[in-house]
């Protein structure tokens, strides 16, 4: 006959195995979830102290295929390129909100804005921005146009804008919008007017 103590020990061990298996499964799911949704490592606020400033964001709306202006108050650094980066980050953050009219993938970010000279700017976005961007002519053009228009609204001397992804050149944003060359701001402004005009010509 099997001793009672042995029976109890076996039951306890089997229970422990089941509990451990359940716990391992939970841990595995948690890890997978973290891998799918990488942590947003951007600072929650601009690392500066000062009074908030009112800036204009040119925001795209997918439903109507239009652009509109939204004013927001954010604290901005004094240095020019950091200032423009924070403004563009505010735009990207707007697109990542729950009620975004033009959703961008979570984790999309503007890494840097380089002001090459008074007229030329380079916007460097992270790889999530491009890799997870929705693909389509209109949706990509809206992103590009809203970013350039937001930049030139803040810094009107800029006439040429180039996009980089993780510091490297890329052919297109998500298969449609050309990122290989410089954008001529006057042409983009004309396109923005077409977008703002709304529906049919």
């Amino acid at each position: 006959m099997i001793p009672r103590t042995l029976k109890v020990a076996v039951v306890v061990m089997v229970t422990a195995v089941i509990v451990m298996a359940f716990y391992l499964r939970t841990l595995k799911r948690r890890t997978e979830s973290i891998q799918e949704h990488p942590a947003d490592l951007r600072p929650v606020a601009a690392p500066v102290i000062g009074r908030p400033e009112r800036v204009a964001l040119i925001v795209a709306a997918d439903d109507t295929g239009t652009l509109h202006r939204e004013d927001v108050d954010i604290v901005l650094p004094a240095e020019h390129s950091e200032r423009e980066r924070e403004i563009l980050r505010a735009l990207v953050a707007r697109y990542e909100q729950q009620d975004s009219p033009h959703p961008l993938p979570g984790g999309a970010d503007v890494k840097d804005v380089y002001l090459v000279n008074d007229t030329t700017a380079v916007i460097d976005v992270n790889s999530v921005f491009a890799e997870a961007h929705r693909s389509g002519v209109l949706v990509e053009e809206l992103t590009i146009t809203s970013m350039i228009q937001t930049l030139v609204t803040s810094l009107p001397s800029i006439t040429r804008v180039k996009f980089l992804v993780d510091g490297s050149e890329r052919e297109t944003l998500a298969g449609h919008a050309d990122l290989s060359g410089f954008y001529d701001v006057s042409a983009v402004t004309a396109l923005a007017s077409e977008f703002q005009a709304g529906a049919n010509p």
Partner: peptide
């Protein structure tokens, strides 16, 4: 398109390879 009741917009776009085509070129989405 309008004659056939299809909603249509005419826009400019930085759509490859339109810039490189040496002929009238249209992108249709």
């Amino acid at each position: 398109m309008q004659a056939r009741q299809i909603e249509v917009r005419v826009l400019a776009a930085s759509l490859p390879p339109l810039n490189h085509v040496a002929a009238p070129a249209i992108g249709v989405e």
